[in-house]
């Protein structure tokens, strides 16, 4: 079964003056790791927003995790159930502890406080930060904060993780560690992983690279684009 099926997707802004997506067709299988690359303004982030139901298309069809996002009225419920987001900036809430940040997506689930806490601690353990559970995010390094953001993205046990430049604000060493952790979690939990990046080294880690330019997919996984996976 496919995790993503997109056909003829169009999205424009400012009364059609800016064509962000111009007839996108894309299929991503369940459990696949796909990177979407393209220069700034190519439409890759708009495409990611569509996949995460943060925005709606003008026309075309988009089905993610079995849900038709064009006709669905309960997009927040879809996000709560199926999607985990990782942003370029960690976007953690500063006044609550690391473990409480991970519990935030769980408010949408029917879980008791104890269940939330034990799941959040398990996820923190998965990213190697269990000992920092009670710290405030500002006490952590940039890499640690992004690892907390990864744990938060997994909090609702999503079937798809969408990461928008997840290592964009990190140095190369930390970046490699974060990517390795993300790929390990994707493999362990069999989660579909879609990363938007403009960094070819990051893109190459994926099973498939989708290249976007001027709102169109110019390559949906041409093997010539990927020579080999690099070790991280």
């Amino acid at each position: 079964m496919n995790a993503v099926e997109i056909n003829g997707l169009y999205k424009s802004y400012e009364d059609g003056k800016i064509k962000a997506l111009n007839g996108i067709n894309l299929t991503i299988a369940e459990g696949e790791f796909v990177s979407i690359i393209g220069p700034s303004g190519s439409g890759k982030s708009t495409l990611l927003n569509m996949l995460g139901a943060l925005d709606v298309p003008d026309s075309g069809s988009i089905t993610v995790a079995g849900q038709d996002l064009k006709s669905s009225k309960k997009l927040n419920e879809f996000r709560a159930e199926s999607i985990g987001f990782i942003f370029q900036l960690h976007n953690l809430i500063p006044n609550i502890s690391v473990v409480e940040n991970i519990e935030i997506p769980m408010f949408t689930q029917k879980m008791s406080s104890n269940e939330m806490r034990s799941r959040a601690l398990k996820l923190l353990d998965d990213v190697g930060l269990k000992d920092k559970a009670d710290m405030k995010p500002n006490k952590l390094s940039g890499g640690e904060r992004q690892r907390v953001a990864i744990a938060r993205a997994l909090a609702n046990d999503p079937s798809i993780i969408l990461a928008d430049e997840p290592t964009g604000s990190l140095d190369s060493k930390t970046s490699s560690k974060i990517l390795k952790q993300l790929i390990d979690l994707h493999e362990d939990k069999n989660v579909t992983l879609i990363i938007v990046t403009h960094d070819m080294d990051v893109a190459k880690l994926a099973d498939r690279v989708v290249e976007v330019l001027d709102g169109e997919i110019i390559s949906a996984g041409d093997d010539s684009l990927i020579n080999s996976k690099i070790d991280v």
């Binding site: 999607i83 987001f85 942003f87 408010f107």
Partner: peptide
């Protein structure tokens, strides 16, 4: 925005 992204309802 993050709260909306993680599925919080209006």
């Amino acid at each position: 925005g993050v709260l909306k992204a993680v599925g919080w309802s209006n």
